[in-house]
Design a protein around this nucleic acid. Sequence first.
DNA 1: GTGGTCTAGACCACC
DNA 2: GTGGTCTAGACCACA
Lengths: 128, 128, 128, 128
Amino acid sequence: MEFKEKKSIYIQIAEYFSDNILKGVWQVEDKIPSVREMAVQLEVNPNTVMRAYALLQERGIIYNKRGIGYFLAPEAEKEVKSMKKDEFISSTLPEFYRMVRLLEIDFEELKEGYREFLEKEAGHEEKH
Amino acid sequence: MEFKEKKSIYIQIAEYFSDNILKGVWQVEDKIPSVREMAVQLEVNPNTVMRAYALLQERGIIYNKRGIGYFLAPEAEKEVKSMKKDEFISSTLPEFYRMVRLLEIDFEELKEGYREFLEKEAGHEEKH
Amino acid sequence: MEFKEKKSIYIQIAEYFSDNILKGVWQVEDKIPSVREMAVQLEVNPNTVMRAYALLQERGIIYNKRGIGYFLAPEAEKEVKSMKKDEFISSTLPEFYRMVRLLEIDFEELKEGYREFLEKEAGHEEKH
Amino acid sequence: MEFKEKKSIYIQIAEYFSDNILKGVWQVEDKIPSVREMAVQLEVNPNTVMRAYALLQERGIIYNKRGIGYFLAPEAEKEVKSMKKDEFISSTLPEFYRMVRLLEIDFEELKEGYREFLEKEAGHEEKH
DNA sequence: GTGGTCTAGACCACC
DNA sequence: GTGGTCTAGACCACA
């Protein structure tokens, strides 16, 4: 996994989990990798993974069984979805509209671009 | 002018200028307020304004006449537009598509939302 | 390290790094001293060091790993060399030619002077 | 006359005078243009011209007859020459040697470049 | 008046 | 520990 420059790493890790839950890759009650394991895999400081897990736990997406590990919460998918939706409405969408307006971009172009985006992603999926 | 919590102030100041240039509020060769003046007006430290101006100068949006002040560069509008477009394509748009896809949002809804956004903005303009 | 009066300190710090890279003292991927550390060592304010580092980063000579520190960029030497060469051609050389011409200096003398300069520098190196 | 970005304007004005004296364009005891006249001609603030004249006077290159104007000092050429030589030795030359060494430039190339520089300048002179 | 540099010291997010 | 941002206040050169 590669990290983008701008966002903090622990946020990107948390998003990686959220996205996979939303995509249905992981199922409720699954055990998720331990902090140490994840840290090695991502080549990241364990503290950073810890922080990502703490964030997810705080939002009710995962929970902890002491001495055993972290698990996906029963409500995980619902939580993630509502969280993402809030984020989309309060942050992504306004910024998007603002830019479209400033740059006088045609909405139809964007629709076309989205179609291409979906195709490209479908291509990626097949690879796995 | 109010500042958002997350973005650094000097970035927001720079964006405030960029946006106004794009909106045609300011014209090429206009003198922009002095560092100190702007600092008083925005209730921030002069250093912070200085930093915003330095950023804008570096990007060719404003230029300096020594001992006199800062002025909008001839290429200001072109520079801002190309800069914003790059940002949109490399950052805003991918994030937007990603979210739309994850949340399985209908594109027609967004189009409708955009129409409302424009109306709301038009309302704001009239107030001034 | 001593600073000259005329040039700003942060520029001199940046040049100190550039020169050392060009001389091969530092190698690609080396970690460079932290901002605070450097500030103590040079007896300047951390902000001043920060400014120098920001300048070097902007020019692609160093890069940052968040929470860890600054490192020499893979392209550091190439960047520095092309930068210095540009500076030499656009600034140092024309000024030099202009002065030589005005003062009607013999080029052979300068060649001799350069030989002495190299010897003197070699002497300095041995001291270390 | 156009001014370079980096050097302060009043220094550039002073250098413009020095250079012309050294080139023999102006002769001892010539009256030089009044501050106001010069300011209009150069499209510059009179204060700036004043500062340049003050600098030249301080160095014994021009002198002032009250109510009449500024004149080239008898020793003007000698003064300028010694001043420039000092500047060359203490500033231009060391910087030049330093760069030549860092960039590992061949001295013969520079000699060739100087020949071209002289030819180009000769061309310019003829135009006048 | 203008910008530009620097210090001292604080606070924050991140790893 | 790391960088990054910001404030307050000072001083300087320049037009």
